[in-house]
């Protein structure tokens, strides 16, 4: 087993040693994650009520979404979570170049996810699949329902995508810092970033079946 990087310079006030700092950062991140669960939870409550009341609308909406593309997006995020684990591992072992490399890989996968998302948005907007501003202008109940479904779709995937964007920015910043390499980043911070990134993954794991897989069979 390789040695844990436990240099005293990694420890920041007011902590006493690396284990202490790690435990605090981990707890802090999990408190943050609990908070995010409720933040996204609101959207899933909305989704659940909407689907319970209008199962047909959700099914029809789900059929308008691109399942193969979304499957690729899911795989992309899962693999990026794996590369993030390796980035955290490199940081814990004090392997600076490994850290920079795996962070870069994670960031690129995230950008690929965002590119697919952008393509998907573009496609739906071009097809007129947008939340309609005025329902009374909708010519039929079906059209009105579809507008509502796409309201749900854009809001749920949009808030997720915003979280991805935030993650990409921090990952890029950390990757650059590691590549320049004047000072090794604190691995407790990389661990925190990793927790955040996996959380973004977890949210998508629920968004994916909720929206994309609702319309088939």
């Amino acid at each position: 087993m390789a040695e844990l990087h436990a240099d005293a310079r990694l420890v920041r006030e007011p902590f006493t040693d690396v284990a202490h700092q790690r435990a605090a950062v981990s707890l802090g991140m999990w408190v943050f994650i609990a908070q995010e669960v409720l933040f996204f939870g609101v959207l899933f409550v909305w989704y659940g009520l909407f689907r319970a009341q209008h199962p047909d609308v959700v099914a029809a909406g789900g059929r308008a979404l691109d399942v193969p593309l979304a499957t690729v997006m899911t795989v992309t995020l899962l693999v990026s979570s794996f590369t993030m684990v390796l980035a955290v591992r490199s940081a814990m072992l004090g392997a600076r170049r490994g850290l920079a490399g795996w962070l870069a890989a994670t960031g690129l996968l995230a950008v690929a996810f965002l590119a697919m998302k952008a393509w998907e948005y573009h496609h739906h907007i071009a097809a007129g699949e947008v939340p309609v501003v005025d329902l009374h202008a909708a010519s039929s109940v079906v059209e009105a329902g579809r507008a509502q479904f796409f309201g749900l779709y854009f809001v749920m995937t949009g808030f997720h995508a915003l979280h991805v964007v935030g993650g990409v920015l921090v990952i890029a910043w950390r990757a650059l810092a590691a590549a320049r390499g004047r000072e090794l980043p604190r691995w407790t911070a990389i661990m925190g970033l990793g927790l955040y990134w996996h959380l973004v993954d977890v949210v998508w794991l629920f968004v994916f079946p909720a929206l994309y897989l609702a319309g088939h069979a």
Binding site: H20, S26, F82, V88
Partner: peptide
């Protein structure tokens, strides 16, 4: 102050992570 499950200071295992990824 330092409480964890005892293994939290071990770097994550590559093999385990690969298995988990495959399962996912």
């Amino acid at each position: 102050r330092r409480e964890d499950g005892g293994r939290a200071l071990e770097p994550p295992s590559v093999v385990t992570s690969l298995v988990v990824l495959a399962a996912l």
